[in-house]
Write a protein that binds this DNA or RNA. Structure first.
Lengths: 228, 228
DNA sequence: CTTTCATAGATCCTATAGGAAATCTCCCAG
DNA sequence: CTGGGAGATTTCCTATAGGATCTATGAAAG
């Protein structure tokens, strides 16, 4: 895996070279998200190191981080496995947790987001065009990325780092993305996002919490249909 | 670091030998908890490997997991640092998150814990004797361990793995333990735990949630006095 | 005496090698 | 023909070595 030298005048604290461990970590997350490593499949360290053209060392460190993230599991002396796609019970648990965190975050965001924050929220919504009716994988992928940015922005602007970290550690968009590539209801999602945005811009905590709760429940119902 | 062979008739799936990475991970967590590595201090990988009598490889993997846990931070090419003791803002954020998760968990626990679960809760409370008035470090340590088991058991018996994992990933008892060694109000903590237990045993979700919320607020007030 | 620069030593990151453990394949016996 | 056992191969884990990068120290110059 080639390393790249940083250009002159780089920002303070950036390393001069890319750290392989970090690159491998991001690569593996993307591979898990895209099901390039089948859910539940064994991760053969020697083989994957060859595929990625790295040695075992950065790969093992990346896998250690993914283990703590809950995205792979380790069976000592046997190997790592990619986490399964969520079972229905795990899916319901995840949405229950989201119901605990995100309406609260939306209410706090409505209270606390200043002008700059609201501008960021508006910019995010503006940047996301309605998905093509039969857009396929790329369209679904872009919708998921928008969804992740939008929800992440709300938890960030809620101003509670513990809640933000807790939300990020669920990796919920990675998990939800793997359930189905065929969410044809992106239009509905955007409509619900706009309702949340309206409440946030109005600075109405109760409305924001209610809109977020409604969105989560609707989203859960949409995705639930795709579970085994 | 010596390895120990498993005895005959070991449970299925246990490796025959201890995995150094896992041992080092637990050792480092304990060292962080006990402030054997000063909060904010650099972790010198070569030196620590010598101290623990292991090579860099299992140490680096353990550090990678701790990084994902949020207990150390990595500055690429410069080294790892142990996370700081919580600032007041981080402390308040953590308790806000606990207020979102734990009353809900207590209510669910009251609804869902069967006979075996309630027995485990009672056993945990019975196993914890009142701390000696001036018990010092060991006494405080035992109280923290009980507190962690008690709260962990409630989130486990609430029956939502995502909420349980979210709570565990806060490592809140490690963080809170590092704030102060001198919680002389262990008696008060136990009294509040008994109130929670009473509600759980009565199968009263509202009472359990209320008792947990009161306990969290009281606990937060007690610890808050020790923050800078 | 202070500051700057250069060099040396320390530290970080990753590749590689080797031993332990698991897995797979083949052969033999029933 | 099937099942079990043995051996070979693969995989996992960790130690070690070497190159890249950072840091600290000492010397020289102002």
């Amino acid at each position: 895996m080639p390393s790249t030298q940083q250009p002159e005048g780089r920002a303070a604290r950036l390393p001069r070279r890319q750290i392989l461990t970090d690159e491998v970590y991001e690569t593996l997350k993307a591979m898990i998200m895209n099901s390039e490593i089948t859910a539940g499949a064994r991760v053969n360290i020697d083989a994957l190191a060859r595929d990625l053209r790295v040695s075992q060392t950065p790969l093992r460190e990346a896998l250690a981080r993914l283990e703590s993230d809950g995205l792979v599991t380790k069976a000592a002396l046997k190997g790592y496995s990619v986490s399964q796609v969520l079972t229905r019970a795990e899916f319901e648990d995840l949405y229950e947790l989201r119901r605990l965190l995100e309406p609260w975050a939306a209410a706090r965001c409505a209270e606390r987001a200043g002008r700059a924050g609201r501008a960021r929220l508006q910019a995010e919504m503006s940047s996301c065009r309605e998905p093509a009716p039969a857009g396929g994988y790329q369209s679904y992928r872009r919708m998921t990325e928008h969804d992740q940015r939008f929800h992440g922005l709300i938890t960030e602007l809620a101003g509670n780092r513990a809640v933000q970290a807790s939300f990020e550690r669920t990796h919920c968009h990675l998990h939800l993305f793997r359930i189905s590539y065929a969410d044809r209801l992106g239009t509905q999602t955007l409509l619900e996002h706009h309702r949340i945005l309206d409440a946030l811009l109005a600075g109405d905590p109760e409305q924001a919490a209610a809109a977020m709760l409604a969105h989560l429940d609707a989203s859960r119902a949409r995705l639930s249909a795709h579970l085994p």
